[in-house]
Amino acid sequence: MDSQYIDHAMVLAGILFCLGLVGVMVRRNLLFMMISIEVMLNAAGLAFIAAGSAWGQPEGQIMFLAVITLGAAEVAVGLGLTLLLFRHHNSVNVDQLNQLRG
């Protein structure tokens, strides 16, 4: 049951998640923040796949399907909001969102 590859895939998932988190925190461009969120979703999917392979059960891949569905819906709505922000402020800098008014 125990395999070094499963362990190392879990470590890789943790590293990828931290990299995505760093990307969300340090970038101020909404487009880059969304790309970093995609990386974090990828890391979560990798953790599910690795766990499913460790136990030989299909549940890991089913949760991965749920994760990529969530990612696709999230990126569609998020990019729509990015377009809206660019149209109103002529910029995609999230620091300009401190003046939210009707």
Binding site: Y5, W55, P58, I62, L65
Partner: peptide, 17 residues
Amino acid sequence: QPYGVHGVAVKDVGIAL
């Protein structure tokens, strides 16, 4: 396919899904 990693066939995924 190394030792300790259990592949899951597409058929099993579809049946469970």
